[in-house]
């Protein structure tokens, strides 16, 4: 579809695809996670404030409350998805070298998934014990 032998005009070929060649999907998911992040960030701040000065046992009890645990899971997962998308745009803006860019975008994905998985695992372990 991107080959030069196409009968389509250059504008027709690229319209809607953007620099990441994935159309508006990236932009839209960034907005959806941004909207979610507003509510989840406020919940996160309330949760952290409520944990100040609490010893381990009390903190674990609070964090394993189903509502608190689900809000924390949503906050960390939505945050990881959102920050991956955002950092990818920054990389695409500043890293000009094609190979370095692909490696940086890949490393960004690995980092976001690793951090998200670490948060999710820790939260589940706190909730389910063991």
């Amino acid at each position: 579809m991107l080959s030069n032998s196409s009968m389509r005009t250059p504008l027709g070929r690229v319209r809607g695809l953007g620099s990441a060649k994935s159309g508006t999907g990236h932009f839209w998911l960034q907005r959806v996670t941004a909207v979610a992040n507003v509510a989840l960030t406020l919940a996160f701040l309330c949760i952290v404030i409520s944990l100040i000065g609490k010893p381990h046992a009390a903190a674990v009890a609070r964090l394993s409350n189903p509502i608190v645990a689900i809000l924390m899971l949503l906050f960390t997962v939505s945050g990881a998805v959102h920050m991956r998308l955002g950092m990818q745009v920054i990389i695409e803006d500043y890293v000009q070298h094609e190979v370095l860019k692909i490696l940086a975008v890949m490393a960004n994905t690995f980092f976001a998934i690793a951090v998200g998985a670490a948060c999710a695992f820790a939260l589940l372990k706190i909730s389910f014990g063991g």
Binding site: G79, V115, A118, F121, A122, I126
Partner: peptide, 17 residues
């Protein structure tokens, strides 16, 4: 900055776990 800050949240949760 928040991108890096998420690492702090992960470390805090791992410590709690």
């Amino acid at each position: 900055a928040l991108y890096g800050g998420t690492l702090l949240i992960a470390l805090w949760l791992i410590a709690a776990a």
